[in-house]
Design a protein around this nucleic acid. Structure first.
Length: 271
DNA sequence: CAACGGACCTGCCTGC
DNA sequence: TGCAGGCAGGTCCGTT
């Protein structure tokens, strides 16, 4: 489910409901996520106030008095705020009880998500330390992509999805950005020119910004932190549209496979 | 160092 | 209708 726009939508939805409040307890029903939920999470969090919610890549950063709770939603995770006493569903693995009678509830059917605690600067956490720049930040542009791609023979789509290069560009938005820039997804990253990387960087920014604006993509059942669904799926040009006409030229969108990942592109518009 | 495949899980959809 | 098989939005890790 979550790509960067979904995570950002979740962050924005949760902020007004949680920031400034005290954690009064933690219930872990299923600690076996991608990494085990820390044993002492309840002990650590209880009694601390939430000072703010940040984001780095697809990690949500819950800034507490004494450190940061780092959350990743994996492929199927979601966070929502419910009234205390709401019975947990089958995959509601963790509840963080909030002062005032609500719960921050983590649901994650596939359990690819994770929770981590750090008392230090989260930027130095092993999971965050090696990450590339934020796609909507100043450090990300065409010049940067051009420089990092020299000599790389990996497909440009895989290059764009490599979190060491740039974070937050998942399968959907990589496909959409490459379409917008007119670049074939299988082209070697090192064989894309400076001009085209300018267009690609711009496309990444605008596709992500538009998705955030729209409240995130809904593939199945994405809900923002406030429980409202995202509506971006209606504007996808190539992703999930195999066999349908390209919105620009009408040619049938092609479905191919790169490694394990399905990829859609227009064989006429993308070179 | 770069590239690739495997691994982690469950739910949902398709087709037999 | 039931069931097997394939597929899904992420990303870390080990091997070549």
């Amino acid at each position: 489910m979550p790509e960067l726009p979904e995570v950002e939508t979740t962050r924005r939805g949760l902020c007004p409901l949680l920031v400034g409040r005290l954690v009064t307890g933690v219930t872990v029903r299923e600690p076996r996520l991608r990494w085990p939920v820390p044993d002492d999470l309840g002990t650590v969090l209880t009694g601390q106030a939430l000072r703010g919610i940040g984001r780095r890549a697809k990690y949500l950063l819950f800034q507490m008095d004494a450190g940061t709770l780092i959350a990743h939603l994996g492929m199927s995770g979601s966070l929502c705020v419910v009234d205390a006493g709401t019975p947990p569903g089958p995959h509601d693995h963790v509840d963080i009880a909030i002062e005032g009678g609500t719960l921050l509830r983590l649901r994650d059917p596939r359990r690819f998500g994770s929770l981590h605690w750090t008392a230090d600067d989260p930027a130095g956490h092993p999971l965050l330390r090696e990450l590339g720049p934020e796609p909507l930040g100043d450090a990300f542009d065409g010049r940067y992509l051009f420089r990092r791609s020299r000599g790389r023979r990996v497909a440009v789509k895989a290059f764009l999805m490599d979190s060491h290069i740039v974070v937050g560009v998942g399968n959907i938005y990589a496909a959409e950005a490459l379409f917008a820039a007119g670049i074939h997804p299988a082209r070697a990253a090192g064989r894309v020119g400076r001009e085209r990387y300018e267009r690609l960087a711009q496309a990444v920014r605008s596709v992500l910004a538009a998705a955030i604006q729209a409240g995130g993509t809904t593939l199945r059942d994405f809900k923002g932190g406030d429980g409202r669904p995202g509506y971006f799926q209606q504007t996808l040009s190539v992703y999930g549209r195999a066999g349908k006409p390209c919105p620009r030229c009408g040619t049938a969108i092609e479905l191919t496979r790169q490694g394990q990942r399905a990829t859609c592109h227009c064989p006429a518009c993308q070179r």
